[in-house]
Design a protein around this nucleic acid. Structure first.
Lengths: 147, 147
DNA sequence: CCCTAAATAATATTTATTTGCATTTGTAAC
DNA sequence: GTTACAAATGCAAATAAATATTATTTAGGG
């Protein structure tokens, strides 16, 4: 998909810009990040990587994901209990809606978010830098299936 | 404070109701949970506990916090990187604002939350069951201090 | 092609949490 | 007040995720 290629290119450019080497492992990791819509964990990435690079170290995946995060090209999403997940397609904070039955995650567009940030600023005096918004519920599919 | 005592009593009642024994360690733990406004971690609780019970095992704290959580009397709040924190005063989901400088956590009252849930229901068809909302920013104190 | 800093693999370590097991202790019944 | 027994505790060892260490390899400029 075009979008995946754009993300891939953006990450490569950012790496070059900061004079980081383009190793095959690194490129494979950003390829996976740019193509994955399911918010993979380090373990997921590592597993997929084995196909092309049997024997990549998990530490390498950790280090690279961390590096790419520090460049602002991947979003870290830690759900309680599970290991941390990453979104390389939309690297900026955004709300999620997670289905507690099928685990599907969707990214809604919320008009009310802007208003909420304003309310926080007014009420608390905080300067909001970033946020983490996750709603958990039952998706339309699982609702009908179950009832 | 009255509120602390109410929370303490609610937790004791819930324990009795489910036929759990009221050991001194357990009572001390719920006392700390009911009095702490700062969302303590297991380690925090354990440290405070040493005052009254030199030698309480961390495992005991873990087990009790887990038990109390399973009774719905404490809210688990896991932030990336740090150990999990707990809120025994407001056991139901609520938004947080976290200062990224001093780590202070406050609980705002957001009018716009209801509206946001409505927007999600309409737009996505999800039935919202629970949520996790955290805003990160710089609190008024740290803003002036730093600039 | 050669050099050097950066990156990798493998291993060890740290930190948070959980579990197994022997011992102790609430608490309900006598 | 004793007794009985399941539940709770303490301790230590087991897991698990993430990070650090170090010797070796390699990307990429000159």
């Amino acid at each position: 998909m075009q979008e995946s290629r754009d993300r891939y290119k953006a990450m490569v450019d950012k790496l070059k810009e900061h004079n980081h080497k383009l190793t095959p492992q690194r490129l494979a990791i950003i390829r996976i990040l740019s193509e994955s819509k399911e918010h993979p964990s380090v373990e997921d990435i590592s597993r997929r990587l084995q196909r092309d690079f049997p024997g990549v170290s998990e530490a390498t995946v950790y280090r690279n994901v961390l590096l790419i995060k520090s460049l602002g090209e991947v979003l870290e999403i830690g759900f309680a209990g599970e290991s941390t997940h990453y979104d390389g397609r939309k690297p900026h904070p955004h709300p999620h809606i997670v289905c507690i039955k099928c685990r599907k995650i969707i990214d809604p567009d919320l008009q009310s978010l802007k208003e909420m940030v304003e309310e926080i600023t007014e009420e608390s005096g905080f300067e909001v830098v970033t946020y983490r918004l996750d709603f958990f519920g039952i998706c339309p599919g699982c609702r009908t299936m179950n009832a």
